[in-house]
Design a binder for these strands. Structure first.
Lengths: 156, 156
DNA sequence: GTTGACCTTCTAGTCGGCTCGAAGGTATAC
DNA sequence: GTATACCTTCGAGCCGACTAGAAGGTCAAC
């Protein structure tokens, strides 16, 4: 099995060595084996786990939330924990589904806002210095359709 | 136009008065008018803006990212800023689309992981104390299909 | 055998995003 | 007129998630 030193794992997963040591300290990842001289020695399972963590992080999950998932990930092969695991995963999937819906609705809202711009009344905080006298002749430049494809439409 | 005091706005938007003052301090929301005695006096445009901010926050955007969007939101009625606005919104929509894709893929990954559980080899960190001798007879409980509907499938 | 890049532990600092408390002013009900 | 529930500013503190630095050990190349 392949073995990696901390900076190599860092390169493969996008974390710095400091961050990896920090994650180990807080129990997010299991401490790897050590070389005779004390160096951390990671394997492919660590890289896989950390890739999973990196993805969850990019999606805005907190380390605490990720910890629940990562524990499932780490212990999932154990038949003894399979029932708890199912609950964690089902709950998380449900949450992800709701996030997807809200993200989709948010894209809609921004799109609608943009299309609606010209018709909006100037709010309270828009003083005369703002210089926003509506110019009737000005055309609202349409948003590139590409920007919203995939974020628009069905929310489930 | 309706007027609200700080705690009322807080109730309507889900922020505490402290947080609202903080947002004003960092320039995320414009300072509202003041009553003769110095009380902050918000209107519907503030409530609308803060509802927008709350949604963006739930989706994991940083206050800095939200600031860009909120500025667009606040100044969007000004014809002078329409071109910059278009760029901000288009970029943000693109980002939202990518997030949607990744979120979807993440749901897939978790689902696949779950289905794949029984076949995974025990990783390095799983010692004998783990007690995970695979019991061939044990059935993998299927995930409730409901949990993934909407997170599964097409990623664009 | 020394250079330089890497590793170790440890402690302290940073940054974003609030959150609390003190000290005091305001508004409304009794 | 006083209780109490709100509001004000200001400064300090807290939590999550790192990040930097000190002091020292390891390893491969020259």
């Amino acid at each position: 099995m392949a073995e990696y030193r901390i900076s190599e794992v860092g390169e493969r997963t996008g974390f710095t060595p400091s961050t990896l040591r920090y994650y180990e300290e807080i129990g997010l990842i299991p401490g790897p084996r050590r070389s005779p001289s004390g160096y951390r020695t990671y394997d492919d399972a660590h890289v896989e786990l950390l890739t999973f963590v990196a993805r969850a992080k990019r999606l805005g999950l907190s380390l605490d939330e990720i910890n629940g998932l990562a524990t499932a990930w780490r212990t999932g092969h154990c038949s003894t924990t399979r029932e708890q695991l199912q609950q964690v995963l089902a709950a998380k999937l449900h949450q992800i589904r709701r996030r997807l819906e809200e993200l989709s609705a948010f894209g809609e809202q921004i799109d609608a806002f943009y299309r609606d711009l010209a018709g909006r009344p100037a709010p309270d905080w828009c003083g005369p210095s703002c210089g926003c006298v509506p110019e009737e002749s000005e055309e609202l430049v349409p948003l590139p359709a590409e920007a919203l494809s995939g974020a628009r439409g069905r929310t489930n």
